[in-house]
Amino acid sequence: MASPAVPIPIEEAPISRWQVVRAQLGEKGMLVLFLIPALLVLIIVQGYPLVYSAYFSTVDWSLAKSSTPGGFVGLANYTKAFTDTVFLDSVSTTITFSLAATFFEMLIGFFLAYMTVGENLLLQITRTILIMPMVVAPVAVGTLWRMMLSARAGLVNYGLSTIGIVGPDWLGNPSMALVSLIIIDVWEWSPFVMIIYVAALSSLPTEPFRAAAVDGASRWQIFRHITLPLLLPVTILVLMFRLIDTLLTLDIVYTTTYGGPGFKTHTLTFWIYQQGLRYFNISYAAATSWILLIACMSIAIGFLVWRGRLNAQQNKGA
C-alpha cells in the first residue's frame, strides 16, 4: 500500500505574507469590489454633506446676503441658538411632542400587539389593515387629518357634536395644535410599535412560560416577571426608533399646521427647514441641525449601548 515518497520541489521560503495576500486577492478583491458602490454612495451623499454642514455651522453664511460662504465665526452660530427664544421654544415644543407621542405610541402599540397577536387569519388581516397608517406617505396622513380635524367641516368635530360636545378648532387653536399633531403621530406610528411587539411576542420562547405555569404563577405574575423582562431588548429598540423619529417629525407639520398658529408647532426639523430652505440662513440652519444631530446620536448610541449591555448580561447569565 505504502507508495514511496516522491521527492517534491520545496516551495521557496516557508510562507511569505505576500503569497498569502496574492492567493486571497482574487476572492477578497471581488468582495471588496461588491462593497464599493454602496460605500461610495454613503460617503458622497451622506458623509460629505455631513462634513460640509459641520463646516457651514462655523462660518457666517446666508444665501440671501451672499452666494459664497463668509468668514470663520467659531461657535457663534451655536451660542446664538441658545439665546434665540424662538429656537428654544421650538426645542421645548419638540421635546414635548416627542415624549408625549412616544409615550402613547408605546402604550397603545403594545396594547394592540397584545390584543392582536396570533396566527389566526382574522388577526392577520386586522394587523394588515392596522399598519396602513405607517406605510402611506406622511404627507398624505397630514392632508387626511387636516380634513378630519377641520373645525367646522371635519369629521371629528361632527362626531363629537353628535354626543353633544362642541369640538375645538384643532389645528387653529394655539393650545390644541400641538395636541392635534401628537394625535396624528400616534395614529400614524402606534402600528409600528404594534407590529414589532407582535413579532417579538410570537417569537418568545415557550419554556419559561410553561415553567412559570408549572410553578403556579398567576397570569399577571407571568406577564410581569416573564413577558415584560423578555421584551425589554425589543422595547429598548422601539423606544429608540420612536424617540428619534418623533424628534425629526416634519411632513405632518408641514401639511397640517405649517408650524402655526404662530410658532406653536414649530418642531425643530420644521424650524431648521424654514431657516435653511426658506430664508437660506445656511450657517444658522447648519449649526442648529448639528445640535439636533448630536441629540439624536446620543440617544441612538445610548440605547444601543444599553441594549448591548443587556445582551451581554443575559448571555452571561445563560
Binding site: 517534491i8 516551495e11 510562507i15 496574492r22 492567493a23
Partner: peptide
C-alpha cells in the same frame, strides 16, 4: 482555510495557496 505555515501538496503539485 489558509495555513499559517507549512505546505500542502496534492499529486506532487504544491497547492498551499491555490484557491
Amino acid at each position: 482555510e489558509t495555513p499559517s505555515s507549512g505546505q500542502i501538496i496534492i499529486d506532487d503539485r504544491p497547492v498551499t495557496h491555490v484557491p
